[in-house]
Structure formats: C-alpha cells, structure tokens
C-alpha cells in the first residue's frame, strides 16, 4: 500500500458517498445516469468475485464490501426508490456499444483464460468506459448540478491517483499490471475534458456546470 493508492481509494469512496447522499437527501436522481451506475455495480461484481476466496488484508476485504454495497444501494435508489425521478429520456447511451467490445477484448487480452481472470479483465476494461453514459447525458442536457460535478471530479481523480500508484509500485517493487495501467490511462483521459470544465467553471463558483 502507498499513499497514492490510499488517496485513490479514499477519493473513490468519497465520490460514491457524494452521489449516494445527494440522491438520498434530494430524493431525486435527476441528471444522474442510471446506466453508468449499473455498469459500476457490474464492475465491482465482476472484479470482487474473489472476495471470499482470496484474503489480501482486512482493508481490502472491507473496502470491497463497502464498494459493492454502496454501488448496489445507488442503483436501488435510482431504479426502485426514486424511479419516478429517473431521467430516462436523457439517459439514452447505448450500453451495448460498450459491453460488446469490452467482452470481446477481455477474451482476447487477459492474463489467464480462466473465468475469474476474464471477469477481472472485463471489469477493468468496463470501468474505463462505464462513465460514458453519464458524460453523454451531461452533454445532452448541456448542464450538470455542481454536486454531480464533484462526484465526477473525485471519480476521475481516483484513477489518476492510481496511475501515480502504478508509477510508484513500478519503481519500488518492480510491479507492473499492464492491463490495469493501459485501461486506467484510457479511463483518466476520458475525464480530461471534464476536468478542464470543472476547474474553469465549477471551481469559479458557478452554481452548475453549463457546457459551452
């Protein structure tokens, strides 16, 4: 464990909490892409299948349970509890355009052709594109509430911090997880445009981020 990875995990946890609290307190999921949240729940489910078979550390196990529980709770709030507030006409990204290539690639590019490894690889590739429906929804509506942009900021920051973690681990313990690194860089690149808008608009105190 290093400070970059810990900061990344905390940033990830903060992002998930921000979204969950926002939906719960506002009793609404307007402007939130339910599809992205379902994809994130799928990412955690396929990545943490080793939850009961492999014990890394108490921290690792606890965080996996927390991430799984909160992502399913978010999906539950969007599609069950506050489904009448779900903005389905703006959440129209075709997720099959994400799932098909990701499934194909995880069969082609993986560390071992075993169910657990292929599902882990699938979760890594899927996480890189899971935010697409949300970013697409923002470009479609042309705006995002500032709390949603804070959610996206911490979500993007988490994988950027993981890149620092991978650089650190490469130099200190000769660790290099090529699939995670390549996918993580692609994922972070997808946030760059948002990061620019976040810094130039939201941090200037705008109530909400209006896209140009």
């Amino acid at each position: 464990m290093n400070v970059f990875r810990l900061a990344g995990d905390v940033s990830h946890l903060v992002a998930i909490i921000i979204l969950l609290v926002k939906i719960w307190r506002s009793k609404s999921c307007a402007g939130i892409s339910g599809k992205s949240q379902v994809l994130f729940a799928l990412v955690f489910t396929t990545r943490y299948l080793d939850l009961f078979t492999v014990f890394i550390s108490a921290y690792n196990t606890i965080m996996k349970v927390v991430f799984l529980a909160m992502s399913y709770a978010t999906v539950y709030l969007i599609y069950m509890r506050f489904r009448n507030m779900y903005d389905s006409e703006n959440d129209t990204f075709r997720v099959e355009f994400l799932l098909v290539p990701v499934i194909g690639l995880s069969f082609l590019e993986n560390y071992a052709f075993t169910p657990l490894e292929i599902l882990w690889t699938f979760s890594i590739f899927l996480e890189a594109v899971a935010i697409m429906p949300q970013l697409f929804m923002i470009t479609k509506t042309g705006e995002a509430e500032s709390i949603t942009t804070h959610y996206l900021f911490f979500l993007g920051l988490y994988r950027a911090l993981y890149i620092a973690n991978w650089v650190w681990r490469y130099h200190t313990e000769e660790f290099f997880d090529q699939i995670a690194v390549v996918s993580g860089v692609v994922q972070t690149i997808f946030y760059c445009d948002f990061f620019y808008l976040y810094v130039t608009r939201v941090l200037r105190g705008k109530a909400k981020m209006i896209l140009p």
Binding site: D9, R47, D50, V54, N60, N165, E174, D177
Partner: peptide, 10 residues
C-alpha cells in the same frame, strides 16, 4: 516486471 496475482488492488 510482473502483473499481480492475486489482484491486490481494488
């Protein structure tokens, strides 16, 4: 450099 197994990152 090695990829990690088991995967120890979240």
């Amino acid at each position: 450099p090695s990829q990690n197994s088991p995967h120890d990152e979240l």
